[in-house]
């Protein structure tokens, strides 16, 4: 199971990095989105993988997942949304300012 998880994180990172290196704002936005998936999964993984459980203490469970990375990742997801939104608006503003969607504001 760990191997699958690691493969997923690695693939997401690879795709994200390739997209981050593109010259247009839109693929960079997609790359940032993919990268935040990868980072969130990685942070989540630091609590190890626990199946068929939940961080709820009233369910009579024997084994619990680590709630700390979960709390961390929950806020990270919401903040990641705020960051993506900011980037989107920046990209739109850049179109307004430069007339194009090149990341450097034009060819160099």
């Amino acid at each position: 199971m760990e191997a699958l998880f690691a493969i997923a994180i690695g693939t997401l990172t690879s795709c994200a990095v390739y997209l981050l290196l593109r010259a247009r704002t839109y693929p960079v936005l997609l790359g940032l989105t993919l990268l935040s998936y990868a980072v969130n999964l990685f942070l989540f993984a630091s609590g190890r993988l626990v199946m068929a459980s939940a961080p709820l203490t009233d369910q009579g469970l024997e084994r619990f997942p680590d709630p700390i990375p979960q709390a961390l990742v929950l806020t990270a997801i919401v903040i990641g949304f705020g960051m993506t939104a900011l980037m989107v608006v920046l990209a739109l503003r850049a179109i307004h300012a430069t007339g194009g969607d090149h990341v450097d504001g034009g060819e160099r």
Binding site: F5, I7, S14, C15, F42, A45
Partner: peptide, 14 residues
Amino acid sequence: VAIAAGLGAGLLAW
């Protein structure tokens, strides 16, 4: 570069 980064992240996660 992307594959290197992915390999690094994947191995680290593993």
